[in-house]
Amino acid sequence: MMLDADWVYFKIDPGNMTFVTRIMEGFEYVGVVTALDGKKGIGFVRTTADTADAARRILLALPFMVTLLTREEALKETEK
């Protein structure tokens, strides 16, 4: 899978992945959530240059812990 460095990568409690997907679906223009490793809560939002900041703000405003990651950090987390 080709992963763009400009997409928004994150780590959350795995039980919240569906919630994040649904929230981002509600913001249709922002991006699409994809799980890199759903069992570990590692995912990303396929954003554009114009919507990446909005995706970060939405993720950080959620009512649970969200850690934003770089592409490299996300790939390392999936290897653990």
Rank of each mutant, 00 (worst) to 15 (best):
A5T: 10
G38W: 08
L62W: 07
A74E: 09
T18M: 11
G43M: 01
A49P: 06
E25L: 09
V30P: 02
M65R: 14
P63A: 14
K39A: 13
F44N: 13
L75I: 15
L68I: 05
M1H: 14
A35W: 12
K76Y: 10
D53L: 07
D13A: 15
A54Q: 03
V8E: 10
R56S: 00
I23H: 13
G41C: 03
F27W: 12
T34D: 10
G43N: 02
A49F: 12
L3Y: 09
R71T: 07
D53C: 04
I12K: 12
V33I: 08
T48W: 02
K40Y: 03
T78S: 09
A55S: 01
K39N: 13
E72Y: 04
M24Y: 03
D37N: 11
A61T: 06
L36V: 08
K11C: 12
G15S: 06
T47K: 08
K76H: 11
I12V: 15
A55P: 03
G26F: 08
G31Q: 00
G26S: 15
I12A: 14
D53N: 09
M2V: 04
T51E: 02
D50S: 14
P14N: 08
F64W: 12
M2E: 09
A49D: 07
A5F: 05
D6W: 05
F64L: 11
V20C: 04
R46F: 06
V32F: 09
